[in-house]
Write a protein that binds this DNA or RNA. Structure first.
Lengths: 154, 154
DNA sequence: ACACGACTGTTACATATGTTACTAATTTAG
DNA sequence: CTAAATTAGTAACATATGTAACAGTCGTGT
């Protein structure tokens, strides 16, 4: 009785996740020196506009301390600015600066290019299969409804 | 122009990899207190028999220092034993002890059960699509021929 | 009004990981 | 044969991450 690590799904996912991320990170790392967590927070701010740290944490699936550090680094770069919410002084509303927006507009097409090339190299059949499979997995494990219910249950 | 993080492939893979690994880790973590890297090294030793640390590193895609630490932890548990190779005294041939084998025989069905349940919940259509997509990705990015060639090129 | 609990974000501490430097053993080139 | 280069594995250092504790703010109930 034996388990073949190479065929074990969690391992396959980890290996591919690491490879795809390393591949994509070239764009934001070499040109801007961003870390992966900084990139995630940054991408969310560019996508959604003003957010709080807690919201970034929620949508990026990153621990709040990780978000806190990522935000700090982006602030030091002057890519974002914070403003205390006057109606609830615990909250900080975080927004990209003009400089941050500019970097975002520059970076997004490159990131999309990397993904598009990947999909093109996969071919239509394979990428459609991949997306179908990923969506099904996400529905099982990451569906917000399901997830929050099972969290409260646990 | 905007990139939707939730739809970005490297992010989706990282999120799913983390979720699947956390899900699977319950078995080896709660019962045996193994870490993820210890589990990987252990699974390989159970699967392939005697190996060197370098071989474990190669097949587990883990840095050699990570492997070194994982092996040390498993040795402390008395789950493996090392023997210096007399024909090349740099090498250590690592093998599971009887105790390690026993744990392996106990753990493997549980890990397979976790994976089988996942696949069952996905359904035949979705899991077939998933496997097709993953295999295509692995062929693109992890094929040993391609990888070693591009490594030497880089 | 005010005590209590809950929430936001940061800091301090412990742990995990990667990079580099190292020892010991072997192989290769001359 | 011997010096230089290579390999296996470990250790030291720096960095990254998670856990726990914390300060400040808010909402609730009395």
């Amino acid at each position: 009785m034996s388990l073949v690590l190479e065929e074990f799904l969690p391992y396959r996912f980890n290996r591919l996740a690491e490879t795809l991320s390393r591949n994509a990170s070239v764009a934001y790392k070499s040109e801007y020196g961003l870390s992966r967590s900084e990139w995630r927070a940054f991408a969310l701010l560019g996508q959604k506009g003003t957010m709080t740290a807690t919201e970034i944490s929620y949508y990026s699936t990153m621990h709040k301390t990780k978000v806190s550090r990522a935000i700090f680094a982006l602030e030091k770069k002057r890519w974002l600015a914070r403003e205390v919410d006057e109606t609830d002084r615990r909250l900080e509303r975080i927004t990209l600066t003009a400089q941050g927006e500019k970097a975002y507009e520059n970076l997004v097409p490159k990131m999309q290019g990397i993904e598009n090339e990947l999909i093109a190299r996969l071919g239509k059949q394979n990428s459609e299969a991949l997306f179908k499979g990923l969506a099904a997995l996400e529905k099982l494990y990451l569906d917000k409804e399901t997830a929050s219910r099972s969290q409260k249950a646990g």
